[in-house]
Computed example of a mutant assay.
Amino acid sequence: MSEITPDLVRHLGVLARIQLSDEEVERLTGQLDAIVDNIAKVSKVATPDVPATSHPISLENVFREDVPGDMLSLEQVLQNAPERTEDRFRVTAILGEEQ
């Protein structure tokens, strides 16, 4: 016998303040029943000797050390700049007059 009934789905809809049509109640009854059945199957398999995990593969930090490398010269940085002023990029002002 199914644990999820149309009356239970309607009650859950009321609690969630969701108005459900009869078609939605019918569809959700089947979907929620399948979810509950699958949870029950997993609960049978999850025994105390099986450790709980959040990921199937253990996670580890794969980042390298942050070590500074070769840097570009100022000329290399600015060589393709559309406009420059001395040793800086020249850009159009984007702030409004209120700033």
Score class of each variant (00 low, 15 high):
residue 89 F to G: 11
residue 24 E to G: 02
residue 4 I to H: 05
residue 14 V to M: 15
residue 21 S to R: 03
residue 46 A to V: 03
residue 9 V to C: 00
residue 68 P to C: 08
residue 65 E to M: 14
residue 96 G to W: 06
residue 43 S to P: 02
residue 84 R to Q: 15
residue 73 S to R: 01
residue 25 V to E: 01
residue 84 R to F: 02
residue 25 V to F: 03
residue 32 L to T: 01
residue 63 F to R: 12
residue 47 T to E: 11
residue 58 S to Q: 07
residue 18 I to P: 01
residue 20 L to E: 00
residue 97 E to Y: 07
residue 70 D to W: 01
residue 43 S to K: 00
residue 40 A to V: 10
residue 87 D to R: 01
residue 83 E to C: 08
residue 56 P to L: 06
residue 58 S to D: 02
residue 19 Q to W: 02
residue 11 H to V: 04
residue 45 V to A: 12
residue 25 V to R: 00
residue 73 S to Q: 06
residue 83 E to R: 14
residue 21 S to A: 05
residue 53 T to W: 10
residue 62 V to P: 00
residue 3 E to H: 06
residue 78 L to F: 02
residue 19 Q to V: 03
residue 57 I to Q: 14
residue 24 E to W: 04
residue 30 G to L: 03
residue 56 P to C: 13
residue 71 M to A: 15
residue 33 D to S: 03
residue 35 I to N: 06
residue 10 R to T: 00
residue 72 L to W: 09
residue 50 V to K: 15
residue 54 S to W: 02
residue 76 Q to F: 14
residue 39 I to K: 09
residue 86 E to S: 11
residue 54 S to V: 08
residue 73 S to F: 09
residue 75 E to M: 13
residue 22 D to S: 12
residue 4 I to C: 15
residue 89 F to W: 09
residue 79 Q to D: 10
residue 19 Q to P: 00
residue 64 R to S: 14
residue 92 T to D: 14
residue 38 N to T: 07
residue 30 G to D: 03
residue 36 V to N: 07
residue 1 M to Y: 14
residue 52 A to Q: 06
residue 19 Q to G: 13
residue 72 L to C: 04
residue 78 L to S: 07
residue 62 V to C: 04
residue 48 P to G: 04
residue 38 N to M: 07
residue 30 G to M: 05
